[in-house]
Design a protein around this nucleic acid. Sequence first.
DNA 1: CGGCTTCATTGACCCTGATCAAAAAGGCCG
DNA 2: CGGCCTTTTTGATCAGGGTCAATGAAGCCG
Lengths: 228, 228
Amino acid sequence: MTDCLSCIMRNRAICASLQPDELLLLSRMGRRQRVSSGHTLLWEGDDAPVVANVLEGVLKLVAATADGREQIVGIVFPSDFIGRPFGKESPYSVSAISAAELCTFHRDQFDEFAADHPDLQQKLLRRTLGELDRARRWMLLLGRKSASEKVASFLLEMADRLLPRGAAETARGFELPFGRQQIADILGLTIETTSRQLTKMRADGLIDLPSRRAVVINDLAALKEMAG
Amino acid sequence: MTDCLSCIMRNRAICASLQPDELLLLSRMGRRQRVSSGHTLLWEGDDAPVVANVLEGVLKLVAATADGREQIVGIVFPSDFIGRPFGKESPYSVSAISAAELCTFHRDQFDEFAADHPDLQQKLLRRTLGELDRARRWMLLLGRKSASEKVASFLLEMADRLLPRGAAETARGFELPFGRQQIADILGLTIETTSRQLTKMRADGLIDLPSRRAVVINDLAALKEMAG
DNA sequence: CGGCTTCATTGACCCTGATCAAAAAGGCCG
DNA sequence: CGGCCTTTTTGATCAGGGTCAATGAAGCCG
């Protein structure tokens, strides 16, 4: 694998916990992998033999019912970790929604390495706790919020995650990595309801929609009010 | 604190990773605490200065909107761990829904201890990964399932968690630790819809409801079919 | 045992968001 | 630039589940 020391995620992914010599060991185990938009890495219910760091691109975690209804249960950005350490099958599938670059490991090898590197494991624990918090806040949205509250909450969350650190309070425009159907799958709505809510928010002057995937927030306070 | 060595959770909670001498250290830090039904230990948004193992009883994790709608985002059973290691405020409140007994620690002290005990941290990581999987499966339910699918899924999940290991496929009756309103808060429904669905399932012969909180599953296959 | 309180059930009605259908707008490639 | 395919928007209708209201059943305690 290309040298971990020069990796763009060197200081952001869980590898940040490692010393140069440990990093060398890890780099021997991993390999870089490009995946194209739409490609599914891991299938729901299958054994998940790989774990990975995301270097570039965006992926979705999708759970589905037997008859094909889908719910996006997680969104994975660069520096995030994917896969299921400790040998369980993946309870959701993982698909790239843009071209992505990963740094993958065999799960068993990774588990073994992690067991010998408590700092790495602690970083992973911190990340997992953060993901759990996020998932639980999303449960409130899915179970108790109206369509307009859902869409407003979504835009705020995206502003927070997509805008450079700290800029969420001031900067206003960003490009979503999702189409309308995917937004609907995140919010537990249909594509039609999602589209209508966005159109209404534009008509009310809260946002602009300069292109299909671009959003500009005009009235952050009103959006927060609306998110409940 | 009462001796960890004789603790009923000795081999089931995260402490199972520790040797007797380590356990002695831990027991000096912790203390037993009884909480009565309805008591709230941690408030949403507040700093959460304690973490704990649950020895007995059931607790709920609740997220709420500003105007008071509530969603239960987690259910905590004996041997489970509660609280938020690594110094973040709790994103949900934690309340006892039955009389409970906990083994509590100051968060900072616990964090420090955990940092020196990789096996403990690994146990915690495993648990957290499991909780995250459970939360994500619940997101599919909240976002995409109908009321009848929700109630059927709930009964199956409860049978799985409340019946002794492995008995879920054969044993049929159990006592829920929840009232109707709490079931509604778990499923993202109203109490009325929840009640109607249960009544209908009884009328259809899928279940019996011998008392307020008791459930007997008559037709497991049909219930699974219904859960989707 | 009986009254009080809390919890659960049932009923009538309505509204939000789903569904079905069609048109419009973008994107892509020759 | 023009045609084709995909994505999004818009419209009309419908139904699942919410809301409001009343009744019924259980638990509790004097």
